[in-house]
Design a protein around this nucleic acid. Structure first.
Length: 140
DNA sequence: TCAGTGACGGGAT
DNA sequence: CATCCCGCCACTG
């Protein structure tokens, strides 16, 4: 593979963090990036999802990584060039009770005030006894 | 090799 | 509000 070891661990961290998003909740690419200690790389988080495998034999694949629970900082599902992909993501989210509304221009948006999940650190890290080290958080 | 691209985000204009 | 711009860096052709 083309991936370097560092990229490999980054992919692993991203997928693991996404697996901690609770059912029926959503968070942003940027927040996932911040949670794993690389706040400057939200774009790479998106790249990880783009390349998420469908192969169930791998440790991380679209069957055990809730990719649908990641949207952009505005709560909008990334169209990523092809509307049907976003539409599909919206359906999966609705399937777990998340309200996804459609705005005039066609964007599918989720209300963070109701469904947002923005912990200051990964629950797994907290359980391991690590101190908070990210943002001071704020919400609406 | 090399230059473009992009499931993003925040700050500036 | 809307745009533009830059940082980021694996992936692609």
């Amino acid at each position: 593979m083309t991936r370097t070891d560092e990229a490999e661990s980054f992919f692993y961290a991203v997928y693991s963090a996404i697996q901690e998003i609770p059912y029926g909740k959503v968070t942003s690419y940027g927040h996932i990036a911040a949670l794993i200690g690389t706040p400057q790389r939200p774009r790479q988080v998106g790249l990880c999802l783009k390349h998420l495998s469908t192969d169930p034999s791998l440790p991380h694949h679209n069957g055990n990584v809730p990719w649908q629970r990641v949207v952009n900082s505005k709560g909008i599902i990334s169209p990523r060039g092809h509307p049907s992909g976003a539409a599909n993501q919206a359906q999966v989210l609705r399937g777990e009770g998340v309200t996804v509304s459609t705005r005039n221009l066609g964007e599918l948006i989720v209300d963070f005030a109701e469904y947002g999940w923005f912990p200051r650190q990964l629950p797994s890290d907290e359980a391991a006894g690590l101190d908070p080290h990210i943002m001071s958080d704020d919400e609406d």
